Amino acid sequence: MWFLVHDLLPLNRPEWFSQNTILRYRAWIAILSRVADGFLCNSRQTDDDLREALTRFHGLSTGYRTQILPMGYVLADGGGTNDTTRPTHARFDMSTPFALMVGTLEPRKGHEDVLHAYDVLWREGHSGRLVLVGRLGWQVDALREEILNHPEYGRKLFWFNDVDDPELVQIYDACTGMIIASHAEGFGLPLIEALGRGKPVLARDLPIFRIHEGNGIRFFPASATPEALAVAVRHWIDEAQAGLIAVSRPESDWGDAARLLLQALEPCAA
Rank of each mutant, 00 (worst) to 15 (best):
V35M: 03
G63A: 14
N215I: 00
F160D: 03
L105K: 01
D93P: 09
A240P: 06
I192N: 05
H212Y: 15
D162R: 00
L261C: 13
K156T: 06
D119W: 07
L11P: 01
A270K: 02
V35G: 00
A258R: 14
H183R: 13
E266D: 07
S18E: 14
L136C: 05
N161H: 03
R13V: 03
R34H: 07
L40E: 03
N82V: 02
G38L: 05
L206T: 07
R65N: 12
I237L: 14
A264T: 06
A269D: 11
A194R: 10
R44M: 09
T66D: 01
N12F: 02
P14W: 09
D83P: 00
R34A: 10
A269W: 15
F187N: 01
V163A: 05
A99P: 00
G214A: 04
R44I: 12
R234Q: 14
L189E: 02
W254M: 03
D83M: 01
S223M: 13
R86C: 03
L132A: 08
C175V: 10
P14H: 08
D7Q: 12
I147L: 15
R218E: 15
N20Y: 13
S127C: 07
N149R: 12
E145S: 05
M178H: 05
R56F: 11
K199P: 10
E52D: 09
G125A: 01
G255N: 15
N20F: 08
P70F: 11
L130W: 00
L168M: 01
P87Y: 13
I179N: 00
L105W: 11
V163R: 08
L143R: 13
V5P: 07
W122E: 05
G196Q: 03
V231D: 13
M94L: 14
F17R: 04
S95V: 11
V120M: 06
R13I: 00
R218W: 13
L69R: 07
H89C: 02
I147P: 13
T96I: 15
R24Y: 02
T88G: 07
S95M: 15
L143S: 10
L130K: 02
C175E: 11
G196I: 06
A270G: 13
V35R: 10
H111I: 06
A203H: 10
T85M: 00
M94V: 07
F220H: 11
P97C: 09
D83R: 00
Q139P: 12
R24S: 06
D83H: 02
E124Q: 15
L157Y: 05
P10T: 01
E146M: 12
P166L: 06
L4Q: 05
G186E: 03
N20L: 11
G125W: 12
D7C: 15
S33A: 15
P226S: 00
V131A: 03
D83G: 02
F219H: 02
F187H: 07
G78N: 08
G78Q: 11
R91H: 07
H111W: 03
F98S: 01
L23F: 09
F39H: 05
R218S: 13
Y153W: 14
E145H: 01
K199Y: 08
F17G: 02
L60Q: 15
R24P: 05
D165E: 04
I245Y: 13
R24I: 05
S33K: 12
A257P: 01
P226F: 07
F98I: 04
